[in-house]
Design a protein around this nucleic acid. Sequence first.
DNA 1: TCTAGGATCGGCT
DNA 2: GCCGATCCTAGAT
Length: 183
Amino acid sequence: MVARDLVGTILVSELGSHAVEIRVREVEAYLGPGDRACHTWGGRRTRRVASMWGPAGRAYVYLIYGLHHCLNVVTGGPGEAVLIRGGAVLSGLDAVRSRRGPRAADRDLVNGPGKLSQALAVTIDHDGLDLTDPSSPVRILRDDWSVERGMIRQTARIGVESAGAAASWKLRWVLDPLATRSL
DNA sequence: TCTAGGATCGGCT
DNA sequence: GCCGATCCTAGAT
């Protein structure tokens, strides 16, 4: 499962004047046409979701509620992507704080998809970016930090209550809080 | 062209 | 814990 493998990887953003690195701690999988919670449900191929049908490793960025950006990683499966929901800041903390604003507490810096995108300075302009390209300003790194079995919890997805049966599918992976203390 | 609703966030009680 | 902001997208007409 691609989504589970993304937990523990590092997201690097060199957008703006400062580099930011974030350890991925929380993801959700969206499984394409057969998944009612997914933007490509029913085989939709609109302009917005075009990147979801692209090659694996591309970014799919969309605007939600007209004001928040959400960053997804395309898996390469038909219409499939993985939403990056949260993480932990490894470096570039000052840049993240300045982007998130002075009122944001440290624990609230990247604990949500909209916040994470803001911390990385990722916007709709970066839709379709190749996250596996070493020269890309936003990319995914796999380091030698291994996620041990049992450190990841699998739960139902958040905020998709209207998706019928798909709402109860356990497609969310979260790094156990106890396992993140050493990060 | 119109309209309803959304993979959220942050402020307020 | 609750609720309003805010605007783009997609489907309906």
